[in-house]
Design a protein around this nucleic acid. Sequence first.
DNA 1: CGGCATCATGACAACGTTGTCAACAATTCG
DNA 2: CGAATTGTTGACAACGTTGTCATGATGCCG
Lengths: 361, 361
Amino acid sequence: MREMKPDTTTRRRSATIKDVAKRAKVSLKTVSRVVNSEPSVLEATRKRVERAIAELNYQPDLSARSLRSAKSYTIGMVYDNPNAYYVIAMQNGVLSVCRATGFDLNIHPCDSNSPGLAEELCELVQRSRLAGLVLAPPMSERMELIEFLAANKIKFVRIISAAADPRDGFPCVFVDDRDAAYAVTEHLIQLGHQRVGFLWGGKAHRSSPERYQGYEDALRHYGITLDKALIVEGDYSFDDGFRGARKLLALRNPPTAIFGSNDEIAAGVLAAAKAANLNVPYDLSIAGFEDSPFSRQCWPALTTAAQATGDIARRATERLIAELRHHGRHAEDSAENVGFSPTLVIRGSTGPVKPGAAQGK
Amino acid sequence: MREMKPDTTTRRRSATIKDVAKRAKVSLKTVSRVVNSEPSVLEATRKRVERAIAELNYQPDLSARSLRSAKSYTIGMVYDNPNAYYVIAMQNGVLSVCRATGFDLNIHPCDSNSPGLAEELCELVQRSRLAGLVLAPPMSERMELIEFLAANKIKFVRIISAAADPRDGFPCVFVDDRDAAYAVTEHLIQLGHQRVGFLWGGKAHRSSPERYQGYEDALRHYGITLDKALIVEGDYSFDDGFRGARKLLALRNPPTAIFGSNDEIAAGVLAAAKAANLNVPYDLSIAGFEDSPFSRQCWPALTTAAQATGDIARRATERLIAELRHHGRHAEDSAENVGFSPTLVIRGSTGPVKPGAAQGK
DNA sequence: CGGCATCATGACAACGTTGTCAACAATTCG
DNA sequence: CGAATTGTTGACAACGTTGTCATGATGCCG
């Protein structure tokens, strides 16, 4: 009998392992073995089965598979980040690996402050049968949460700031915020700035103290005494950047440069500077952190530290999946925690200190 | 030996329908009926089963369910949008409905220009056993794609610009870009602007001509003759906004206001104005469209049209799920295509035309 | 009061896959 | 040369759920 219809519109009842077995004249189990690249299949048999698979365009049914094997081919990505660019970059990184490896992705935005978060995540894993989780900051840095997940035998990989000590035994990919913040601060200092303001990010994030440390280290290294008045606490937000900058600019001896802990903060600083009729970078230099698209789209564009968010997420996902695959056995190539270092990107928002600017008291 | 661990860490083998049945002293099938709120269960029985469910914290296994019923409880969200804010807002809207209804979400960013997109989506639906799709623009507006999906019996709901005629028979939620663009243009005219530039968005999006129409309608209504020189084509991007604005500002008789088809374009215009040393809004008024967070974070903040992206996505998802639930029968409350109208938000980037500005030739 | 819907419930098969175990052939070893 | 080992394959059960159908109980009508 011949093919009945052109292929494009036929609603092909998708082929099952049974169809493949029949066509290749082997048992179900042998097909299964081929599909899962198990050993102990004769080369000739394997070839025959593979051809049958190709001819029928067979794709294993994820539901049946995960039902039977209690394994799953879906990973979860957990984040609580108001920053859309960051989230999208992470998602795309995770997704690219998922697609390459045949995993599905289940995104799970959540509230990192929720007291029931640990249970929520356990239930999520159970309900959606997730094979493992990719944890973004700040969840990834809350040790009691991490330990709870580990105790419940949930597999995960964390994306963290180096401060969280990648050698605590739980797998992670880490970002060296401190070094990058040092580089940003150094850049400002080398432009002649002696009074550099610093706006903190959210306390829930380990990256905040890390970035602060980088700032402090650079000042110390260049022999500039720390002025507490130039340091303002806040959150990773535009509004806190605006508020913080207003506070700093109102000082009797204001800074000539302000380092915001991320680009949103820096955007707030920029707005405050504009509102105060300052000319950036002539009257005030501004630096951010993260290199979101809008740091390029501000005017002037922001000097910042570019972190390869997509790559970081990709690497994290690779680690997780390698671990899931080898299930216990150590995945030789992926067992190490990998670090990423953001790099300084110099744009128009930073410039040499103004000749006549008040320096020191 | 004593109990090994406190309860928080015990890996509770999750309860199955069998456990619930045993506890409630009914058959498997009755539990199933309760879970799926099928009729024909005595009130007393239902109560008993519900208690058992609660006590055991039972959650149906999605894999088993979809395997057996060939239905699925996962919907896909298909988008190709470089705008992170828009995507995140959509995702969150879709997710909120998913969570409320017990569906899972599978996100699928894709390339709307890919020639194999239709097949790609069919395979996606098959492979991941998706119950239906939420389609964002511009995929949602490509009729040959839509028809292909429909021919393959894939359920979907579209989010489209009103131009695509919501009465074409395929379910959708639509946005009245035209009216909103009219309102934005009207606002500029009422500020005294006679020469209003317009920067087009991407041609792949139906919203582009819609927004242009709104602009044209407003000019006509106020008796302002259309000046083709003030209209520039481009894409929904910062760079095209920058380029377009440069072009307009270089005219011998430049516009006193520029309406960018979305906020990214407007941000580009803002940058171009700054680069040209113009004072916004004194020398040039700028309006955008969409109300992304950064329209509030520019300086000056952008006048724009706020579309309730989250609500739109939510409504679309509700429609889709209602349709999936009633599977054929018409879902009475959700069968209608719903429209949304973005609303004008006035901020600092628009102001009265400068008294001495050249008006007309 | 007999017959016939209607309702509430349960027994059982089936969904597509993988795990267990046994069967059998080919090879190696004592 | 027989026994043990290895390698390749298949039969069958099981995963947790829902669909089909059968069962018995109840109510209604003539």
